[in-house]
Nucleic acid binder design. Structure first.
Lengths: 162, 162
DNA sequence: AGGAGACGCTTGAACCGTCAAGCGACAACA
DNA sequence: TGTTGTCGCTTGACGGTTCAAGCGTCTCCT
């Protein structure tokens, strides 16, 4: 920690940063834990299923789904293979363009989302919204948008290969 | 997404939530990417090294270090083994109580932190603080504290075994 | 039509984290 | 001083993610 770097963090920023990093890690872990315990799926798997459930025809291209779920295409491919084995999803080539693969939520997959969502939402509410004031919730939304656009469209998403 | 669950999310909350989850994942990934690219270490490894560098004698018990770095003891043990092989850290039993293991930062480890920190701090600043107003930085710190205490001392940290 | 290249996705290997079992060191009690 | 229990940590196997290479499909250009 040598001195006089051009733009060092001051104490306030440092504290914000440590608090945020800790929140980042522990909130992720807490959401994962709840889903794993109550539904036997990871947070990423939940995002995949929930993303499909909100889409028209319960269908999305793999690449769109990867973007929505903030994961790499490779990771999504492995995960969809597992979800397929569990009977919640199936894949089919896009009739409009054979390069695309469509992921489709089955009825069983829909049921899974319906059964899982309330508990998950309750946990999000308990850990994230209940402790905050209305004003903080508004600020948080704005902060999220600003940081997300600072990160850039895809800077952090290792979605493009090599 | 069936209706009238007791405490469903409204549109504003929903948007806050999606923004935050996305920020959560992408910010973690962005910080990891920067460190991996510029220093060849993971964010967790950085937290470990940086935690030691800020401690008296550059020394910390494994369990304290795990708490600081928000990771399990098992994970820390594996990571320290790797950092030991790279010559940045060594372990020694606590002379005061043989059950504890002390992790100590070597000179090479200190150099590594000094070389790595400025770039990392710059990235944190670029992605997290620069896009926010002073007021939002203050809010973020407060939000972090509130959410962290909602998660509880260790609810999300799988630091205790079995 | 045919070839080159771009695109979307998949695959297998290597790596990392988690989980459960187990080890040595210490404390409490007989 | 044993014995029992707890504590802090380590270990190996397992499961998931990443990385790089490769496949099939489509587009563009001649």
């Amino acid at each position: 920690m040598s001195a006089d770097e051009p733009r060092w963090l001051n104490d306030e920023e440092r504290e914000s940063w440590l608090a945020l990093v800790s929140m980042l890690i522990r909130l992720s872990a807490a959401l994962d834990t709840q889903l794993q315990r109550d539904a036997g799926i990871s947070h990423f798997e939940y995002q995949v299923l929930s993303g499909l459930s909100m889409s028209p025809e319960r269908t999305l291209r793999m690449s769109e789904l990867a973007l929505f779920a903030d994961g790499s295409l490779s990771r999504l491919s492995h995960v969809i293979k597992r979800l397929e084995k569990r009977g919640w999803v199936y894949r089919t080539p896009d009739p409009a363009d054979g390069r695309y693969t469509l992921a489709v939520l089955t009825d069983a997959g829909w049921e899974k989302v319906v059964a899982t969502a309330p508990g998950h939402v309750a946990e999000v509410r308990r850990l994230l919204f209940d402790p905050l004031t209305k004003a903080q919730q508004r600020q948080l939304r704005e902060i999220g948008h600003r940081v997300n656009s600072a990160i850039g469209p895809d800077e952090a998403c290792p979605n493009q290969q090599s």
